[in-house]
Design a binder for these strands. Structure first.
Lengths: 211, 211
DNA sequence: GTCTATAGGGGGATAGAC
DNA sequence: GTCTATCCCCCTATAGAC
């Protein structure tokens, strides 16, 4: 649509600068509270230029939203579908990867979840093959096998997945509350999350045998 | 500030109608996306009247936000501080109560958490004595005792609390995603949550012994 | 207390010069 | 491609009649 960088030195095309700024502001404030002027300011460019590259606030948002959700999901997809790693290993990998990821981008979970709730993000969930991705994954097959062998008590794989995501993601979403309760600063909070990389796999293992 | 109902038949004073409407709209869309016109419409009154009762959108929001957070917390406070019930019982009570509560009001968790993140909700967290409430609770004392007796492996009570809240609250926040993954309708989703009333206490018990 | 009408300002988008 | 200036709608809030 606009000039295509051939071998542009650093990814500092204007388009990329605007997207980077939009990511920051949208992730932090959400669609409704974001002012296009703030994005332009953050990007160090003029408001008119934003509309030149992306026709509207909404188009820009859709771009950012799609890339954010896609970026979040793709690692999950990779891990869940790896035939070689065990179920235990998958739990470890997901806990470890996402705790680091969200520590760096702490606004992403609540951003995604609240925007998806508000407007279903323009049918984003329908466009991404989430259901097949998860339901046909090696993860689900391994879970079924473990249930069949009596190694896992709770037969519903959705509970398994919910539990894993809950333990990994929720503390970040509730961070301000937990910092308030525990009187933690950011560093101490992150330290707690690092501990959870080791703890969550242990916990999940114990939970799933219980009945 | 306005007329005080003496023994008003049903709580259908205009003020209460506006607040009820504001709750619905704010909880669903959040502060920034809410239009005062929508609230007035939902309440079946005129826009001007809204400003007559509550001086501004922000004042109305603060009222709703405070009552929402307070309403959410007060049961937690009651349960956590009950000296008579055991730690196990507390877990049961919280899981059971909040699963029912959030099933009826599914927008509340993400509403509270995203508004608190956005603007700290006008220092709401500082005004409510959350920290003392939790840190001095019977819940925390019982947790410490259990750790001392070797009944609980993980000594940090924040992990315990995070885990409990995660398992209870997160599935609701991620509901659209989980419905997409599992292909569930609302009824089936609620069924899953009902199962968790029984499962979460079992899981928590198993987790906390694990190391 | 409740309404209609309108002021006032903010924010998304565009025209047009460079 | 990038800027300045500006349009215009929408939203909050208020004035004033009843």
């Amino acid at each position: 649509m606009v000039k295509k960088k051939e071998t542009k030195a650093l990814d500092t095309t204007t388009e990329e600068k605007i997207k980077a700024a939009a990511r920051v502001v949208f992730h932090k404030k959400g669609y409704a509270a974001t002012r296009t002027r703030d994005i332009a300011g953050e990007a160090g460019i003029n408001l008119a230029l934003l509309n030149y590259y992306f026709r509207s606030k909404e188009k820009l948002f859709e771009t950012i939203m799609f890339e954010t959700v896609f970026g979040f999901m793709q690692n999950m997809a990779l891990v869940l579908n790896d035939e070689k790693s065990s179920l235990e290993k998958k739990v470890e990998l997901i806990a470890s990867y996402y705790i680091d990821f969200i520590t760096k981008e702490p606004n992403i979970p609540i951003f995604m979840l609240s925007e998806i709730r508000n407007n279903n993000a323009g049918g984003l969930l329908e466009r991404l093959p989430i259901k097949q991705l998860v339901m046909n994954s090696a993860f689900f097959k391994q879970h079924q096998e473990a249930v069949a062998k009596g190694k896992i008590a709770e037969p519903n794989p959705l509970h398994f997945l919910m539990n894993l995501l809950s333990l990994v993601v929720f503390p970040f979403i509730a961070m301000p509350l937990l910092q308030g309760i525990g009187g933690l600063n950011e560093k101490q909070f992150n330290q707690l999350m690092q501990e959870r990389k080791r703890l969550i796999p242990v916990w999940i293992k114990a939970m799933m045998k219980a009945k």
